[in-house]
Design a protein around this nucleic acid. Structure first.
Lengths: 282, 282
DNA sequence: ACAACCATGAAACAAGAGTTCCAGACGTCA
DNA sequence: TGACGTCTGGAACTCTTGTTTCATGGTTGT
């Protein structure tokens, strides 16, 4: 870190007095110490007096301790970016169910986004930007999507919560909501009765409501929502598909990101730093 | 860096005054500044008075500027000496528009399913049919997908659980697993260290492991998995996309459904009856 | 339009940093 | 032993830092 300083110390290492050697040892042991700590603190660490420390740096040729610190800082100001790549592989065989399934998903996605009013995205981004908090709520399968959405949006900004009614104590969570908060409602059929009261509460709290739902419910949703994003969810019968809803959710996130690239970038690197600090990942 | 400080700033970023914003900008731009520079210098860089700077830090909840610096230092000492690259590697391109996003999702889906070995589906269905229990596990964002998968597969058969390590008591959940149980592992980067031990446990328990992951990890996953389904997850940089993984999950469900139509149909009507009895839905 | 409030910088102030001075400790050499 | 030189820490001192006070200008709300 402070290479020049280190070099100077090594250069004189044979001629150092015992106290000076103590100081040198502290510095060599942790080379960035000189950037972050005061001379007084260094003295304390080395177990010598401030006076000796001052003399030490002067004897190395610096006019000042200030000069030492400035030099160290200057050295630090060097960086370099880096890039990454993407991979490819080979195609393989088809299967009846696979192509059916794929076709279904593709059609749902395509229709959904084709019909999506792109002018809504800025509005949504605006709501999400100005919201003190963001709440995601979903019932049944959509609760899973809500969870995923919470994780996704938490990357973008602080104050993103899942409204899950943990332990049936909705009141507990609802008490934390406030005006201008954004409520992202994810709902397909069937809908619990609870939803009505929940929405009534949200309205009186003056939350902004963004609803992702199927076309059948869209008209109804318009009545209580600030924005409605209808999703195509055709699904040959029994098993619902949530890929489209999830994708719409991501689109919103991307729109938000597009409008706040620097802030989000900051947040993401910060979160990464914390992860690293916690050392949970490989 | 000074993650905690940065987080606090971001948290309050919407409520900052103009001068405070200047200071915030300086700090966000170079996150290590606070370790190496004095508050006076920061004030000068931001073009505001020392007084405002002092107030700024206090308003963030710190008692002192000293406290700020100490915290930053402490964080630094926790971290690897090399970790302070702190590169401001801003993502160059975003999928900003709807069509970009759609194209991305379509391509991911298409490639994934084109490359999918359709002969694996019967194997998977077989595993799921014969498994005493089915466990889904995912970390980070994938935990949300796991949740969704649990809800999805619970429609198909009994004994579908999410392995979530609720309250850190993995042992509690793992104690319920047994031989021939199916473990559906959902994993993109980054992967927690815990995963290794978890897999080791699963192996010795003789669970069947079905892994949904990205291509980079697929080869590695082959070593411990009975089946690996690689997903394309290209995502212009910052925000991951889980639509594809979710879709693959649904495909598995569909495959299962295709082989056991009557049993599943039976189950679904039963569940509907229970819902009706509980009278939770509209 | 007025009052109340807030944000802000200049200046006064207190605290702490770094330097210098000085006296004592230690070792060396005659 | 005594004289000398060097190394060292304590204390005085100076300079800088960070905080607080106060006056000013701008905004909000009624």
């Amino acid at each position: 870190m402070a290479s020049r300083l280190i070099l100077r110390i090594q250069e004189r290492s044979s001629r150092l007095t015992s106290s000076e050697r103590k100081i040198a040892q502290v510095l060599l042991q942790n080379q960035s110490l000189v950037e972050t700590h005061t001379a007084t603190e260094l003295a304390a660490r080395a177990g010598v007096s401030k006076a000796t420390t001052a003399r030490f740096f002067r004897s190395l040729g610096y006019a000042d301790f200030e000069e030492v610190r400035l030099q160290a800082r200057e050295e630090r100001n060097r960086r370099e970016p880096y890039a990454d790549l993407e991979s490819m592989s080979q195609p393989a065989t088809f299967g009846r169910t696979i192509s059916d399934h794929l076709e279904l998903e593709l059609r749902n996605l395509t229709r959904t986004f084709e019909e999506l009013r792109s002018d809504l995205l800025p509005d949504i981004a605006q709501i999400l930007e100005t919201a003190p908090r963001i709440w995601l709520v979903g019932f049944g399968d959509e609760q899973g999507v809500a969870r995923l959405g919470q994780l996704l949006f938490a990357r973008l900004r602080h104050g993103v919560h899942e409204l899950s009614g943990q332990g049936q104590s909705w009141a507990n969570e609802l008490s934390m909501t406030g005006p201008r908060d954004a409520l992202i409602l994810l709902t397909f059929e069937p809908r619990p009765k609870l939803l009505r009261s929940l929405l009534a509460h949200a309205r009186t709290t003056r939350m902004r409501i963004i609803t992702l739902t199927d076309h059948a419910y869209a008209a109804q949703a318009e009545r209580f929502s600030d924005v409605v994003l209808p999703c195509h969810v055709a699904s040959y019968g029994t098993l619902p598909t949530h890929a489209t809803m999830l994708s719409v959710l991501r689109l919103i996130a991307v729109a938000y990101l597009g409008r706040n690239p620097e802030a989000v970038g900051q947040r993401i690197t910060t979160l990464a730093a914390i992860d690293e600090e916690l050392d949970l990942f490989e």
